[in-house]
Structure formats: structure tokens, C-alpha cells
Amino acid sequence: STVGLVNGVFAASYTVRSGENKTSHKCLGLSELPTWEPVSEEQLPPPSTVPLDLVDKLERLALVDFRTKQGLSCLEKAIRFADQLHVVDTSGVEPMDSVLEDRALYLRSDVVTEGNCADKLLELSKTTVEEYFVAPPGNIPLPKREERTAMLKDSEF
């Protein structure tokens, strides 16, 4: 069949091709070995643990919850992964904010070209009152962690 022929052509050509590849480029060598190894545990400083009060603090700062023990272990793994940075010698190196550090910031002239779109903006919000966005009462601190966990169980998802 035509299709078989198409496949046949390609399959055949590929086999021929890969045969040729056995003589790899001299830069890469024949070896399959990678040129570096992942950082081993011994090279790293002792792992940091995240105590419960820090968990609570992070949840308050981020206004995001860990949800389960798995969430906490994910954080600890993420920190462990980041610990590899300490193997690198950065003495005398300046931190880099962005690749645009040598550029000058664009200055806009003081002319009105935006605004006056209250209706478009208010449309986007679930809760508005006349022309205001609405927030619940503020400055009431988050409840304690146990209460929060209970609240989350009751929530939509």
C-alpha cells in the first residue's frame, strides 16, 4: 500500500542514517558518559528543617496553605535542591538583577492617556458595590492554623 511504502521509505532511511551515526563527531566522542555528575549529599551543608512555627509564618506571609504533609516535604526538597548553590564559589561576584542592568529606564512624558474605564474594570470583579470594589473587613488576623485547616475542608474544593 501507499502508506506502507511511505513508512517503508522512512523506516529504511532512518536505519541507514543511524548506522552512519555510529561514528560520532570527534567533539562528543564515542563515550556515552556525561561530563558532570549531580552534586552529592556530602558536598552539601546539613539539610534545613522547616519547624511548625515557620510553616505557620510562611502560610500567613504567602496567604497560601501547605495543605498536607506532602506540601511540607515538597518545600524541604525544594530547599535541598537549592542548597546545591553553595557548592559554587561566588566570592567577589555582584548579584545580577536582570540582563538589562546596563540599560537606562525609559521615561514617559506626563500626559494623560489612560484611565476612565471604571466600568470595564468593575465588570471583572465578582463583588462590587456601585463603583467600588468590595473587600471583607480588614485587619482581622488569620485564625490559628487548626481553625484554618478546618475552614479549608469546608471550602469549595
Binding site: V112, E114, N116, C117, L121, Y132
Partner: peptide
Amino acid sequence: SASPVHFSSPPNSLVSFFDA
């Protein structure tokens, strides 16, 4: 943002997309 600065304007009338 290039939205205007006046006082005592209708709520959210001087707000651009960036301001929101």
C-alpha cells in the same frame, strides 16, 4: 501609569489597567 491625578473624582474613574 498614564492615568490622571485629580482628587474627589468618581470612584475608580482614574484607574488604568496597571493601577488595577
